[in-house]
Amino acid sequence: MNNLILSLNDVSKRFINQDALSRVDLKLEQPGIVGLIGPNGSGKSTLLKLMAGLVQPSAGQVLLSDKKITRRSGNQIAFLAEIDSLYSFQTVEEAIHFYKGTTPYFSKEKAIEMADILKLDHKKKIKSLSKGNRARLKIVLTLARNAPILLMDEPLSGLDPLVREDILKMIVSYVDVEKQMVVLSTHEVAEVEPFLDYVIFLKDGKILLKDNVDSLREKRNTSLVESMKEVLA
């Protein structure tokens, strides 16, 4: 199967009183881990939601290998929201069964293995899990979908260091970097820098820089954190 290409052609997104994204052009190709970096309000979440077909562009086109992206693209694009978005009445086990029954390629075995590693109680209701464990479960369910493209909106945001470490460990261990593409938004650059292949710096709804991480380091002769400070200053 050919690699999937996610492209945004001159995409703008306007909400009632503000431009969230302005004339964005972007082309991302599998595989690899892409860091979407920018301050709060820079348009990272909106960009990811557009890529998942969960919001519609005000102008321009969002395409997956030349086909318009809609929410039905969920068979190839898994989206992990920053906010708590699990069905709280389900148990961990029921959530796994639900995903197994509703998403293609979902690996129940992989989900159970990850849940066991993260010591999630399968019988526990989601509403009685701690914030950290809900975040762990979200990452378990997203990674087990085995979608060719994984979009993760601030997967580390607001979590304590132990949970962040667990989540990064899961991403590194369970993403097939030869086949899958992960686009993760964050402003915790230092933590994710070692894993990134490609980086996009976003500010005020505009892409300020997009480049391969290694070539960026070579060109600027600095770490990604330093580059971010310079670009987003």
Binding site: A52, L54, R71, R72, S73, G74, N75, Q76, I77, A78, F79, A81, I83, D84, S85, L86, Y87, S88, T102, T103, P104
Partner: peptide, 15 residues
């Protein structure tokens, strides 16, 4: 309201 729409609408099942 409960933000589960991010899961619900990302399910690739037809509307």
């Amino acid at each position: 309201k409960e933000n589960t729409v991010y899961i619900w609408m990302n399910l690739p099942l037809p509307g």
